[in-house]
């Protein structure tokens, strides 16, 4: 049997979910034996998201152009997409900028009003991606197969989600251990 082609991705989040993933400790070794890691900011050097991915954990909300493009790419090339952590599921802390209105007031607040010195708006087309007006949960942008809330989801929750997937089954996302926000 071919190994499961496994990926993790990082959109607008703090990478805490990935840190929690690394908290899987020795189970990571077991995981590494059972999957082929094809894309991941913490476990793989490839810069382009590959085709035919079986499972991908996506951390973070969708906050800018790059996030948006990568989200679509992931959806197109992935069988089972897991919305990984509160930022992906609810927009969470990155989403708190939505209360300010669109991207302009956000940039002004961050780069002009709160600047210590040299206040200026970032402008580097092609290098710094444009902000979207709203940070959105992943499922408002692309269809999602599994939701794993948590800030971050504990290593136990990650393991309990992945184990059934490795067996080719869908995990039961229910109960405090699996779906409590925060």
């Amino acid at each position: 049997m071919d190994k499961i082609r496994f990926a993790t991705a990082w959109l607008a989040g703090c990478s805490g979910c990935h840190m929690s993933f690394l908290d899987l400790d020795e189970w990571l070794i077991e995981l590494a034996q059972r999957v082929e890691v094809v894309y991941s900011p913490v476990a793989c050097d490839l810069k382009d998201y590959p085709e035919n991915v079986d499972v991908c954990l996506v951390e973070g909300g969708v906050a800018n152009q790059d996030n948006l493009e990568l989200a679509h790419q992931i959806r197109d090339r992935t069988k089972i997409l897991v919305s990984f952590g509160d930022c992906a599921v609810t927009a969470n802390v990155p989403g708190m900028r939505n209360m300010l209105g669109g991207s302009d007031p956000v940039l002004k607040r961050a780069y002009l009003e709160l600047a210590d010195s040299g206040a200026q708006l970032p402008h580097a087309p092609g290098i710094v991606p444009d902000l979207l007006d709203q940070v959105l949960p992943l499922h408002q942008v692309i269809p999602v197969d599994i939701y794993m809330p948590g800030c971050p989801p504990s290593a136990d929750r990650i393991k309990a989600t992945l184990e059934p997937l490795l067996r080719g089954e869908m995990p039961q996302m229910a109960g405090r251990d699996m779906i409590k926000f925060g």
Binding site: L68, R75, D130, D133, Q134, Q140, I142, P143
Partner: peptide, 12 residues
């Protein structure tokens, strides 16, 4: 086109 809807509207 079930994933198309929200993205178009939210591009800045």
């Amino acid at each position: 086109n079930r994933s198309g809807a929200p993205t178009v509207a939210t591009l800045s």
